[in-house]
């Protein structure tokens, strides 16, 4: 009797907690999986390159560069490590930024040629959260002022949507590979945020080639 009483009390509290959550209209945070949704935000005054690096004009003709929301959602929790020091030159297409997520890394190529004036010191050991604001990566003094290759506002959003669809297909193709059995990719048919970290190094490499060049 005592045993049953204790077990029922335990279960009573567990169920009560779930009911409290329900009454509050909330979901248990542990049950919540962030779904990688198609909603993207892109700042009006910014431009986007095809290597998922955004650029924004700041004072003295300098450009501020950072990663976009798509990367944040595809990689999940990540740290950014600039690969160049202040004062160094970077060529177009040269790797200049590294993202570490889980125990994997991807490299970003510079969309533009120029001299790096500032590196965001606050990025060290910080999980990137506000990718269009505080967590920018570098400030660059561009060699030319030609920014025609980059998309902006609605065009940029449309491009991000296309990238999302392309990414979904990419994941769907990869998740059929047998060696990936045992990996959580999907939650109710949707891909989840940070889905990329479940893949092997080759797939990450392919992702880099297909999305970040």
């Amino acid at each position: 009797m005592v045993a049953l009483f204790v077990v029922l009390t335990f279960l009573f509290f567990i169920i009560l907690d779930l009911l409290v959550l329900k009454a509050q209209g909330k979901e248990h945070p542990a049950f919540a999986v962030k779904v990688f949704n198609k909603k993207f935000f892109f700042p009006k005054e910014s431009l986007i390159s095809t290597s998922h690096i955004w650029l924004q004009k700041v004072q003295n003709g300098m450009l501020k560069l950072g990663i976009d929301e798509f990367i944040l959602k595809a990689l999940g929790k990540l740290n950014l490590i600039p690969m160049k020091n202040e004062g160094e030159f970077v060529n177009k297409g040269e790797p200049f930024l590294k993202a570490v997520f889980g125990n994997r890394t991807v490299l970003f190529r510079s969309p533009i040629e120029g001299k790096i004036n500032f590196v965001n010191k606050n990025l060290t050991n910080k999980v990137v959260n506000d990718c269009y604001g505080d967590d920018w990566a570098i400030m660059i003094e561009p060699k030319s002022n030609n920014l025609n290759d980059f998309k902006k506002s609605s065009e940029a959003i449309k491009w991000l949507h296309d990238e999302f669809n392309r990414f979904k297909d990419f994941i769907a193709a990869k998740s059929n590979e047998p060696e990936l059995a045992g990996v959580t990719l999907q939650d109710g048919g949707n891909i989840v945020e940070g889905v990329l970290r479940s893949f092997d190094d080759n797939t990450i490499k392919e992702f880099e080639e297909q999305f970040l060049l």
């Binding site: 009797m1 005592v2 045993a3 204790v6 248990h28 542990a30 049950f31």
Partner: peptide, 27 residues
């Protein structure tokens, strides 16, 4: 890999454990 079932299972294991210890020591 379903978060709800994982939770439910952990709760059940603990409930069973409670039963076991109280069965041994009291029932």
């Amino acid at each position: 890999e379903n978060r709800r079932w994982l939770y439910a299972s952990a709760v059940m294991v603990i409930a069973g454990f409670l039963l076991n210890r109280l069965n041994v020591s009291i029932s």
